[in-house]
Design a protein around this nucleic acid. Structure first.
Lengths: 171, 171, 171, 171
DNA sequence: TTTT
DNA sequence: TTTT
């Protein structure tokens, strides 16, 4: 008996606007960074803040939604799984590792008008977007075990390692 | 408004026996790797397995328990938060990053006699250990926000970056 | 604005064998109870145990798997969402409420040979079953937001409240 | 080997202002209801919304914070564990059950000015509150296993069942 | 490097 | 009603 659980849940703010690209097979991939902040008392008893940065990658329909509605500063809930990729860094010749959260569920928190730098000054478009959001369901991609042979799942992980996509690396 | 959620939950098997050390301040730090395995259908519709490896670090009392009771192959539940550390790699002169799960809750799954290579053939010691475990509570360290000025929390994160401990880096 | 997160994650042991039935529409529904145990120090400083009982309901393919492989005493991980149903109790004429976990992901923990009363002494059938399990993926039903108009999702929640199914109420 | 996991994570909006009381032992207890909303396609393919209501109970320091800062309509993240209590209903003579989430972590989401009916029209007080919040840590109570013999933990669960507090029942 |  |  084996199998496992690999789950990450984050609430934080986007560090920048999401970036999208398309794989050779036509899937959308969207990346963004997310900051989660914790407060804690240090040795002297004063409150300190510590921010942790996370690399989020999302695929397919959810990637399109993230690309369309998320902006720098927006507060979101992200659920997904941990994935560590390795690649050979051209410059140093070293093998490098990146750990990302493959996002399978995302929810916008707070209200549109309350959010960061992104939504301001973009007029009706963002508004239309948000009200579209208001009436839509939770943004979710099917968990691994439920994919029904669509054939695009393996590309979720292998895609980013394809040689020609190297400069799409998320950071 | 800020603050955040940074939570990881894993169920998997230890890739090796845990390794412990003590910080200058006397805290115990225990590291181990955890494999989580997922199955999915590939493009041809056949089932594939994919294993993800996670670096777990745990502190204080929980570190001692992990060191004492966990063995290679043991199935556990791990809860914690993501933390990415950077350091300057001496060999290459490159800055490198490691993402770890700072474990704040751990639970052994299955039964002792059912577990990997570790518990077998080690006689009474492991047994005593397990029955000690059986009567003890869930192994947990206090979350960041609840530390009450004990002064050792910051060492949880800053400890591993102290110069003199560089060769204690978990990988 | 809006939407939400409603997530439950449990690790515990089944209090009895699962019970299955079929809805009018042909869906399988499987119910079981799950015990989660916590230890804590009481006012006198001695360790106490407290067991919480949870009512689990699962639908469709996952219901079939639970029915087939789970037995009294088996340790499992259950993920799902909270759902409170009300019904008019015939005897008392009172309105009553039941809170259940609608299970959308289940994983067996430990090994088959290590588990409760169920698997022992039932010969090859259970064994065949278990090895079938071993090669299959994580048992998951699609989250609400991802159903693609298949038409059977609403029956997950509305089904149990249909008049003709009243005496199928899980407890 | 046993022990278990009993975890609930919710993101939703308060259905009303929190209500607080004090136990005989001087602990603060705060109750509120939380609505989580999900969208799903029904059998006809149209989007439907379903709201689930949750009863939240929180203790001690966290109860004081909830009482002070949360208002009807406010969006929050709640983490806790499921607990089912029973009591004898005086009117009907029936045994009744209530399932609650014993909240051990809470975080306010969105911004103060963006929140429901509660904060509006209350002038500076709410503002002071919120900026206090901005500088404070995550609101958390220690998990069960980490209580260090303070003696008040058992009252978390037994408190609400004390005869004289019956009319404090959360609903 | 784990597990089934 | 489970488990250790």
């Amino acid at each position: 008996m084996a199998k496992g659980l690999n789950k990450v849940m984050l609430i934080g703010h986007l560090g920048g606007d999401p970036e999208s690209r398309n794989t050779a097979s036509g899937q959308t991939v969207t990346n963004f960074t997310l900051a989660t902040t914790e407060s804690f008392k240090d040795a002297t008893g004063t409150w300190q803040e510590k921010t942790e940065w996370h690399r989020i990658v999302t695929w397919g329909k959810l990637a399109e939604i993230c690309s369309q509605y998320l902006k720098k500063g927006r507060q979101v809930y992200v659920e997904g799984r941990l994935q560590t990729r390795s690649w050979d860094d051209q410059k140093s010749g070293e093998k490098k590792y990146t750990t990302e959260i493959v996002c399978t569920d995302m929810q916008m928190l707070g209200s549109a008008r309350d959010q960061g730098t992104g939504n301001g000054g973009q007029g009706g478009a963002a508004d239309t977007g948000m009200s579209g959001y208001d009436r839509s369901p939770r943004y979710t991609t099917a968990p691994k075990g439920t994919s029904t042979g669509s054939g695009d799942y393996p590309q979720q992980s292998s895609g980013p390692m394809i040689e020609s996509e190297k400069d799409d690396l998320p950071f």
